[in-house]
């Protein structure tokens, strides 16, 4: 059923006024809607048919049967409503992804008082996922979210619905969680590494592996010094216990720099930086990231990469 555009707009506005964005939502009567399902209408039709039959056959028992069906329907209203009422939803985790691909948002459902069975969650217009939340527990659910462009993609309105227990009525609510997913820039290959610092600023440093250390000198042994670094040869010569000292090379740490890409559009800059983050990460090169308003110290590893990508996605507002 499609409503005319003005009514649709008005309805959307009314919904967002009635259901404001919030990081945590407990479903209550303000938020819950209920309406019979197709089968519910069919069921009511059957009840009416039995009613007519009971009247025509002048059979009070058949009539009672139709009343029982109607009563079950009425009672089902309460039970269906109850299945959603009191259910809490709050932000779960969030998994970023590249723009034009998809990320996913975690939603945690919790219930303090009663069991909630067979709840369906979905973004409007997408496939739903089912979950049950027993009393006093929490259940988490990940929902895929299309990321149309780079940046913070705010969680769309989510539909929470259930037809449990009889399938005669559908109860639903719209939840707008104050939740977002970061969309990383799409990597864009470029020849020039927008980096400075270290010995070599232009090309990727291929030599000089991390941890390659140079000998500097000796000092007398102190408790706690590694036995491997003791100058055993000297000890054998009778010079006493001495510890060999080493030091890190000064170079080899790269700073990916926003400013190195002057004259390129914002999104493109971010895409190029993204590409280089991935390249350097793959080569296990320590790298830092300098963006206007944010500096990430040089490092390597998965967490560092994610941090860098998230920074690129969040630019220019780092939360």
């Amino acid at each position: 059923m499609r409503l005319p555009a003005p009514i649709q707009n008005y309805y959307q506005r009314w919904l967002s006024r009635r259901l404001p964005r919030s990081p945590l939502v407990i479903l209550n009567q303000r938020r819950i809607f209920i309406f019979p399902t197709g089968y519910g209408f069919f069921y009511l039709g059957v009840a009416s048919l039995l009613f007519v039959g009971g009247i025509n056959y002048e059979n009070n028992l058949v009539l009672s049967l139709s009343f029982l069906l109607a009563s079950l329907f009425l009672v089902a209203i309460l039970h269906t409503y109850q299945n959603l009422s009191g259910l809490g939803l709050r932000n779960g985790g969030s998994e970023s992804g590249y723009a034009a691909e998809s990320g996913s948002l975690g939603v945690t459902l919790f219930s303090e008082r009663r069991d909630h069975y067979c709840i369906w969650l979905k973004w409007e217009g997408q496939a739903a996922q089912q979950i049950s939340v027993p009393a006093g527990t929490e259940s988490a659910l990940w929902l895929n979210l299309a990321l149309p462009r780079r940046g913070r993609v705010v969680a769309p309105r989510m539909k929470v619905e259930s037809v449990f227990p009889l399938g005669l009525l559908r109860t639903w609510s719209y939840v707008s969680l104050e939740h977002y997913c970061l969309a990383w820039p799409t990597p864009q290959a470029s020849q020039e590494c927008p980096a400075d610092g270290g010995d070599e600023t232009v090309q990727v440093v291929s030599s000089g592996k991390a941890g390659n250390e140079e000998f500097r000198g000796l000092r007398s042994y102190v408790a706690g010094d590694s036995l491997r670094r003791i100058d055993w040869k000297g000890y054998a010569r009778g010079t006493g216990l001495n510890t060999k000292l080493f030091e890190d090379p000064a170079g080899g740490r790269l700073w990916l720099n926003w400013d190195a890409l002057e004259g390129v559009g914002t999104e493109q800059r971010l895409s190029i930086l993204c590409y280089w983050v991935l390249v350097l990460d793959q080569q296990q090169q320590p790298y830092g990231l300098k963006l206007p308003g944010l500096t990430l110290a040089p490092d390597t590893g998965d967490n560092h990469r994610l941090r860098a990508l998230d920074a690129l996605a969040a630019y220019p507002e780092f939360g």
Binding site: N56, Y57, S64, S71
Partner: peptide, 30 residues
Amino acid sequence: RAVAMSLQAVPVMLVLFVLVPRVAPLWNMK
């Protein structure tokens, strides 16, 4: 759950049984 729901439905059924007006048969089916 079915027992709970039915137990709740039966009083409603009784109310309907007592109060819903009996209509004369629309057509006769004996």
